[in-house]
Write a protein that binds this DNA or RNA. Structure first.
Length: 260
DNA sequence: ATGGTTGGCGCCCAA
């Protein structure tokens, strides 16, 4: 089963790029973030025409928004709201596993909870995720946690750990918080299972670079984690970097895991 | 220290 996660930065603007992703990678399930569309305007018919008959979504006007597109039946779904009414999570039960798709708050620019409420909100959000799993799920459950987590926890998840040490997405506080969430539930990071932590691995490159490939100042913000019982079913991963060179690309590229 | 670019919406905010 091929599962993709992609921060698409407006689903309505990039329906053609979704079709290109489907043609090239044939995903069975696609988890989207930053759909930037309220539910009443979600392009459900266009996506069904592309072969995804089971679709769940939770969106709002202008900001945030998540969706799960599946070729397999979704037997149940729900959306968690950890902060105000931000649409940042959707969960689907498919086959024998439960798939959680998150869009963690970016956190603004200033890495100081006293002066930047967005950063405070981000840290509180990650804490709320951990609390929810601790209270509602077991380590023995078949869980898949994916999404734009907006945190690059390891040294080689960013182009320069030193230069980004005080930049939101790679501050020590965020890195610790995300690793704590991962470890508290024994989640396995699929990317680092296949690519050694000593190797650079990025899923996002800023728009604010003349040549993203040449400067290569990337960060690993997009994740697919699986709970321990699913680890032995991991087949391989694909980082679909070509997508960053498409016309009017997202600043994130699709990240894919194949799970038996 | 600064500014670089994009999308949605509406003349600015968030990323």
């Amino acid at each position: 089963m091929i599962i993709a996660t992609w921060n698409i930065n407006s689903v309505r603007l990039r329906l053609d790029l979704l079709q290109k992703l489907f043609n090239a990678q044939a995903p069975d399930i696609v988890c989207l973030q930053e759909t930037k569309v309220q539910d009443a305007h979600f392009p459900i018919e266009a996506l069904k025409d592309m072969g995804f008959n089971h679709i769940v979504y939770s969106g709002e006007k202008s900001y945030n928004g998540v969706a799960i597109l599946s070729k397999y039946e979704i037997s149940d779904s729900f959306s968690l709201e950890f902060y105000n009414s931000d649409k940042r999570h959707i969960c689907a039960k498919i086959h024998d596993f439960e798939l959680h798709n998150f869009y963690v708050p970016a956190g603004g620019d200033e890495p100081d909870t006293l002066i930047n409420p967005k950063y405070k909100h981000k840290l509180a959000y990650v804490e709320a995720m951990e609390q929810w799993f601790a209270s509602n799920r077991l380590k023995s459950d078949n869980l898949i946690l994916v999404g734009d987590l907006n945190i690059a926890p390891l040294e080689h998840d960013v182009w320069s750990s030193k230069q980004l040490s005080n930049v939101v997405s790679h501050t020590p506080f965020e890195r610790t918080a995300l690793i704590k969430l991962q470890n508290s539930f024994d989640f396995v990071d699929t990317a680092r299972k296949f690519v050694d932590p000593s190797q650079k691995f990025y899923s996002w490159w800023s728009y604010r670079n003349r040549d993203w490939k040449k400067s290569n100042r990337g960060r690993k913000l997009d994740h697919i984690w699986v709970s321990k019982p699913l680890e032995s079913r991991l087949q391989n991963i694909v980082l679909y970097k070509e997508a960053r060179d498409w016309d009017r690309p997202s600043d994130h590229v699709p990240y894919i895991a194949n799970i038996a």
